[in-house]
Design a protein around this nucleic acid. Structure first.
Lengths: 176, 176
DNA sequence: TCGCTCATGTAACGTGTTACATGATTAA
DNA sequence: TTAATCATGTAACACGTTACATGAGCGA
């Protein structure tokens, strides 16, 4: 599943510009998918060529023109087909865990710093998810992705905190 | 952080062949990193050129020759430097959650099947981790990666099971 | 006999990341 | 004045995935 499919998915929710889609990716999809402009804009162009999305140009004062994309019927069909044929995989790529795996090779202050950074980022993700969780009227599938994100992120945070508790304070300074 | 660094890491544990490294990736690293032969063998070759690993050939009867790689001092230094300079990121790529996000577009039987598949795979990961967890004498950093994997995987499984409980049984058949 | 394990590798392909380029508006 | 937001895009590069190629031994 690539950025193109995710763009179709985003447009199945509502019409949007490339810029809007990027923002959606950073909010609702942030904990399980990411893509930059470098893959979004080319994706939208290709989808337009293939007739899966249509594009209308909206002029703006004081701003560059917007290109607002809409899902076509062909696009919706392509999206559904892609979804039905995609196996429900999940792959984590964690530099953090690699670092922890080789923690014995790292200077202790670096280890502490690293744990703190990961904790900060995890808490930031948690915050985004908690905000999403407060919104109402979402389909159960979307709610599920939020619950799943909340549950796994909380588990991760607790795990890091527990590890911290186990670090000898007199060695590592104790401020965390 | 790429396959090359992970190969250095693997070789910091003990000498190994490309084949051995792949197996290590599938066991100890499976829940946070993956790589196929297509990236491991070229990585080892390049590391040899760079003097970060050395290679001795072991002839075998009845088997093709083995190439056993060892980390050099330069390689160990490169590994540590890479580790120290790598930010502790973590990125999930979940086709499963994408599918769930757009669950309202899927036929209900496909949804059920999908949940079952993910549950099976998560339980398989859990089993690997539980086996690892039984081993003794591991450095705390490695133990941590296992605990982290266990905690997040259990959270994910509980989440899927809870969602299943909420599905109306008369509609979805009730066997899960 | 079938499939798994051991063992190495190549080549094409697909995909994403990063840095660059542009530029006005607006809130702090 | 600084940084952020809005808004689009390109090009080079890095990287990983997949399929292919080879082949013997061994246990069920």
């Amino acid at each position: 599943m690539d950025t193109r499919t995710l763009c179709l998915g985003a447009l199945s929710l509502c019409d949007a510009t490339g810029y809007d889609i990027k923002k959606l990716f950073e909010e609702a999809f942030s904990h399980f998918f990411s893509a930059g402009y470098g893959s979004i804009y080319p994706a939208l162009e290709k989808l337009t060529e293939e007739g899966k999305v249509s594009c209308r140009r909206q002029e703006q004062e004081k701003r560059p023109d917007k290109k607002i994309y809409s899902l076509t019927e062909a696009g919706r069909a392509a999206l559904v087909e892609e979804l039905v044929n995609t196996p429900p995989r999940e792959k984590l790529r964690s530099e953090f865990l690699v670092l922890m795996f080789f923690a014995h090779l790292l200077p202790p202050p670096r280890l502490t710093e690293m744990l703190q950074q990961r904790l900060d980022e995890s808490r930031a993700v948690l915050k985004i998810l908690e905000d999403l969780d407060r919104r109402e009227g979402m389909p159960p599938g979307i709610k599920f992705t939020i619950q799943y994100g909340l549950a796994t992120t909380k588990a991760a945070i607790e795990c890091i905190e527990a590890y911290h508790e186990s670090l000898p304070r007199e060695v590592y300074g104790g401020h965390f």
